[in-house]
Amino acid sequence: MADSRTDDLRHHLVNLLTARQAHATFDDVVEGLSPELRGERPEGTPYSVWEQVEHMRIAQRDILDYCRDPEYTQPAWPDEYWPDAAAPADDEAWDRTVGGFREDLAAFCNLVRDASTDLHAAVPNGDGHTYLREAMLVADHNAYHIGQIVVIRRQLGAWPDPG
Rank of each mutant, 00 (worst) to 15 (best):
I58G: 02
A143C: 01
G147A: 03
S48V: 08
P75N: 00
M1T: 05
G147V: 02
D69G: 02
C109G: 06
L156C: 09
M56Y: 12
V151H: 14
L156M: 09
S48Y: 11
H12G: 06
H23G: 13
D90S: 02
F101N: 01
L9C: 02
R20Q: 14
Y72L: 02
V98T: 09
A86M: 11
A22M: 09
D3W: 02
E92F: 09
A59I: 07
P124K: 12
D118R: 09
E80V: 10
T45D: 13
V150L: 06
L137T: 08
P46L: 06
A158C: 10
A59Y: 13
E71D: 11
D69Q: 04
G39Y: 04
W94D: 03
Q155D: 12
C67W: 01
R102Y: 08
C109I: 04
Y47T: 05
L119C: 05
I152F: 04
L16I: 01
E103I: 09
E54V: 14
A76R: 12
H141L: 07
L16G: 05
H145Q: 07
P83A: 05
R133Q: 14
A121W: 03
V123A: 06
I152S: 04
C67H: 00
I58M: 12
A2F: 14
A135N: 02
R154L: 13
L33W: 02
H129P: 03
G147T: 03
L33I: 08
S4E: 14
R41D: 08
G163K: 11
V138P: 00
R102L: 10
S34M: 03
F108V: 08
G128T: 08
N142V: 10
E92C: 06
A2L: 15
V29L: 03
N110S: 15
D79F: 14
R154M: 15
A22C: 08
F101W: 14
R61H: 13
A22V: 12
R38W: 15
Q74G: 13
R102W: 06
R61Y: 12
G44Q: 07
P70S: 06
T73E: 10
I58C: 06
V49S: 12
G147F: 01
C67E: 00
P46V: 06
R153G: 08
Y144K: 09
R113T: 09
I146E: 01
D27C: 10
G147E: 00
R61E: 13
G39E: 01
Y72M: 01
A93W: 02
A59C: 09
E36P: 10
V150G: 05
V30M: 10
A158E: 12
R20Y: 07
G157E: 11
G147S: 01
R61W: 12
M136C: 10
Y144C: 09
Y66C: 00
E31I: 06
H11P: 05
L13K: 02
G39N: 05
T18D: 11
Q60W: 04
D90N: 02
E51K: 09
N110C: 11
Y131C: 06
R57T: 04
W94V: 00
A59W: 13
Y66R: 02
N15E: 15
V53W: 08
A122K: 11
T6C: 03
P83E: 02
V49K: 10
P88H: 09
G157L: 13
R153Y: 08
H55A: 00
V123I: 11
V30T: 15
T117V: 12
C109S: 14
M136Y: 10
L33M: 04
A59Q: 11
V138M: 03
Y47N: 15
D7L: 15
M136E: 13
R41L: 11
V123T: 07
